[in-house]
Computed example of a mutant assay.
Amino acid sequence: MPNTLIFVDMPADDPAAAGRFYAEVFGWRDDHKPEGVYHRMVPGGMFPNPDGSDSAIGNLHLGIFDPANARPHPESDGVEPRAIATQGRKPRIWILIGDDDTPERILSAAEARGATVLWRDHFWGTFNGLNHAFRDPWGNEIVLWGKAGDPPKIPEGYTRE
């Protein structure tokens, strides 16, 4: 069995507020462990089988940690750096848009809660996806990925690469 990605963490200087943000924008369950220190965002559901039925593999979770004392760590007081990175490129988190949701609703909900829309309406042929992106109030970049279909159906006005 290969090494398996099971979790991705992102920083927020207010994990409780970030947990509420993602629960409200995406409808995920916010498990605080403990509240304000580390929040596990649980999207629910299972990865689909090729026939569309649920597989035995649960969707990946997203962790939100406080950079002032990133847990877990062997040092009880944590270590430097203790601030969110504000300059340059950072990891981006890709979210597959559910079949019963829209990028417009997600971007609107995120923006209403303090996010900044980075771009809308872009087709990336390499992965056959319709992409949109926002920066959350803590500086994390979220890229939305929608299925373009086979053959791809690219809406009018989309940029392409």
Rank of each mutant, 00 (worst) to 15 (best):
G139C: 04
I95E: 05
P103Q: 10
L107H: 01
T126S: 09
L130C: 03
P103L: 02
A115V: 08
N128M: 08
G125M: 07
D99Y: 06
G149C: 04
P91L: 14
I142H: 01
D150P: 01
R135K: 14
L118T: 14
V117C: 14
W124E: 13
W145A: 13
P103F: 08
A133G: 12
D101Y: 02
F134D: 02
L107Y: 02
I142W: 03
P137V: 02
D99M: 08
D121Q: 14
W94N: 13
T102H: 04
P91H: 12
A115L: 09
W94P: 03
E141W: 00
G114A: 11
I142A: 00
R105F: 05
G125I: 00
T102W: 09
W145P: 00
P103K: 04
G98Q: 15
T102S: 15
F134K: 01
V143C: 01
D101G: 03
L107T: 07
G98N: 14
E111F: 06
G129W: 03
E104S: 06
L144P: 03
D101T: 13
I97K: 00
R105H: 12
L130N: 07
H132T: 01
H122G: 12
I106Q: 01
A109V: 01
D101M: 05
G114W: 13
G98W: 04
P103T: 04
I95T: 03
A148P: 09
E141M: 04
R105A: 14
S108T: 10
I142C: 01
I106S: 00
F134N: 04
A109Y: 02
G114H: 11
P103D: 09
W119F: 15
R113W: 08
R92Q: 10
D150V: 11
I95Q: 06
N131G: 08
G146D: 02
N131I: 08
A115G: 11
K147A: 11
L96K: 11
S108Y: 00
L130T: 04
A148I: 05
R135A: 15
F123S: 11
R135P: 05
V143L: 03
D100P: 08
R92L: 11
I106P: 01
L96D: 13
G125S: 13
W145V: 09
G129L: 05
W124K: 11
R113N: 10
N128P: 01
P91N: 09
W119Y: 15
F127N: 11
A133W: 04
F123T: 07
D101Q: 13
D150M: 10
A148H: 03
D150H: 11
N128T: 11
G149Q: 05
R105M: 06
T126F: 10
W124R: 12
L118Q: 14
N128V: 07
A115S: 14
V117D: 08
R135V: 07
D136I: 07
G139F: 05
P137E: 09
I95F: 12
L118P: 10
L130P: 08
I142G: 01
F123N: 08
A109G: 04
T126N: 09
W138A: 06
N140G: 04
P137M: 04
D99F: 06
G98D: 15
A133T: 04
R120M: 09
W145N: 13
D121L: 09
W119E: 13
I97P: 01
K147N: 14
E104C: 01
A112P: 07
S108I: 00
E111L: 06
